[in-house]
Nucleic acid binder design. Structure first.
Lengths: 336, 336
DNA sequence: TTGTAGGCGTTATCAG
DNA sequence: CTGATAACGCCTACAA
């Protein structure tokens, strides 16, 4: 039979409350008693029961992770899994645990908010999702602290790469290479990050008089990039010299798409991606790209979320931009 | 103020226990009462408190996921994250949730077992880990149902690809290509899967009189594969025609290693990997490989674990092998 | 500084 | 089939 706090207290000739205070490091307890309790607890291997503590204290020290079902990417996407990994590392240092938020318990559907209340999660990280999902809106509107690494909404704190800076870097780099026929293959604008990148590209390009073209890929993967490259070649009234692609995944396909039409990358067309996933440096040609600092994003999200929980800060609309860096590899370099 | 079961019962002129029975679908309750309760609960938006339920019922309907810290790969490895994703999908259909097992709560270290008892997790999936970790041994030896997708231990149910079959397929394929100088670049034998693949290779190759060579890579990534390829060329007394590599990650590097010494893949040397991660088909040359059925592994692990929990089956040593398939791509094909 | 007592929301047992 | 009641293990006032 597992010992509980009452038994332990009895065996030490103390009151349960005293033991509780020692265990939770609050209230006034003499050092001597404290030591005695700690030693005994270790000796007999007593440990607290999480559910009883949660029930009584009304908080769980658990953070929910939410991947909304609608976007089909989840754990398997290296970008999100990296963010999650660094988030996890950070919060565990702060004695929080993480659990996945679900919207179905067996047969029974429930809203995200309902689930979070059921579990008393202290806060939620919205990793990826569809901002039109009413359950997400409801959750963000609730009292539960939320942080997102994917989308921007009123009353939500968002940690996101500085996408504008990324596009600026890409364009500036084109100029340094003396390539002025610059086009873009954008990712589907259902994702806010893709949208931001495309918007900035328009903004920057409109400042010069050069014509430019933008093609929106129809999906997220290799094939979508491949197809978009071919569409770009068809639609642009002159051959591009430098193509900015909304993500590395798309860029891999785009390169092959250009090649399939007889263009050499980078000799004829330089291609630069966005993300710097692991494979970018292994690809042939190695892919130049804008590196997102996934570790920083995950850590900042953790820090912010914990802060909101502990300081009981009211929710506010906030967008924290994490700087990106340009990584120059073979896919843009012009041989002299 | 949130409603609890007592309030709800009172408002319906029922006893809390009756409401509880309805909610949990057990015990005898008339259909009429059941309907009345369900309707009312939906109407007023009542939902259970998980912690109270766990406290009382002594189980949490939560499954722990354990990545042992020692192997540094975690969520970020596409192989493990795929397994986890399919495991998650499956268990959620069965109304289980998943949570990550940790060994540190803030400052306080605790054993995995202790943590699991604290949280009352119903079972644990050991995704990857070091089988020498004493905490893992302790957990596997405990009463908590465990399933692993990575290592084999006494009293543990393991779901793992049929690594032997994979090697057999690779070797047979070499023969069909009329390539008989077959070598292997094995992954570090700290991982059981790599060990199994290497052992089988020795076994198969020893049956023929042909000399063969095996090099063990020093790590898991591209660079380790690259280095191993070069070491292989140095140590083998004849140039290989067909090289089986322990993982796709290593194979990517190995191909470039061979190329760096002037060999063409596949014309001079065919290379075949193991895993079929997403990137394999995008690589140049597209990588032939042995596909592990990650979805099947995750689902089988889920099925087995839930079965052990629900049937209260005693633990036993069991290894369930999931068939693999060979995927032929450009890295092995010989032009005629 | 320590002890007492009540209650958190649920479920299980047993009686009606 | 339904109801009363006693736990589950812990925390938090407040009293001593």
């Amino acid at each position: 039979m597992r010992k509980n706090i009452v038994t332990v207290a009895k065996e030490l000739n103390l009151a349960p409350s005293t033991v509780s205070k020692v265990l939770n490091n609050n209230g006034k307890v003499s050092q001597k008693t404290r030591d005695r309790v700690m030693a005994y607890v270790k000796e007999v291997g007593y440990f607290q029961d999480a559910s009883a503590r949660i029930l009584k204290s009304k908080r769980s020290y658990t953070l929910g992770i939410l991947f909304s079902d609608i976007s089909l990417v989840g754990l398997e996407h290296p970008f999100f899994s990296s963010i999650l990994q660094s988030f996890k590392n950070y919060v565990e240092k702060e004695a929080y645990e993480i659990i996945f938020v679900v919207s179905k318990v067996g047969e029974r559907e429930m809203s995200y908010l309902e689930w979070c209340l059921t579990k008393k999660v202290d806060g939620v990280l919205l990793v990826s999702g569809n901002l039109n999902n009413p359950y997400i809106k409801e959750l963000v509107a609730s009292d539960i602290p939320c942080v997102s690494t994917d989308f921007i909404m009123p009353n939500l704190t968002t940690i996101i790469s500085d996408n504008q800076q990324g596009i600026d870097l890409s364009v500036a780099y084109a100029k340094s290479l003396k390539r002025s026929k610059i086009d873009m293959i954008a990712g589907p604008s259902t994702s806010i990050a893709f949208q931001l990148r495309m918007d900035r590209f328009h903004e920057v390009m409109n400042k010069s008089k050069n014509p430019y073209f933008v093609i929106e890929a129809k999906g997220f993967g290799y094939q979508s990039g491949y197809d978009a490259a071919i569409r770009l070649l068809e639609q642009a009234t002159r051959t591009p010299e430098y193509v900015i692609v909304g993500s590395d995944d798309l860029a891999f396909g785009a390169i092959r798409g250009f090649e399939s039409k007889g263009f050499k990358v980078p000799d004829d067309i330089s291609v630069i991606g966005f993300d710097d996933i692991n494979f970018a440096r292994i690809y042939s040609p190695a892919l130049s790209t804008i590196r997102q600092d996934k570790k920083a994003i995950g850590e900042m999200a953790a820090l912010k979320l914990i802060q909101m929980i502990q300081e009981k800060e009211p929710k506010k609309t906030e967008v924290i931009k994490i700087p990106v860096t340009i990584i120059e590899r073979a896919s843009t370099k012009i041989k002299n």
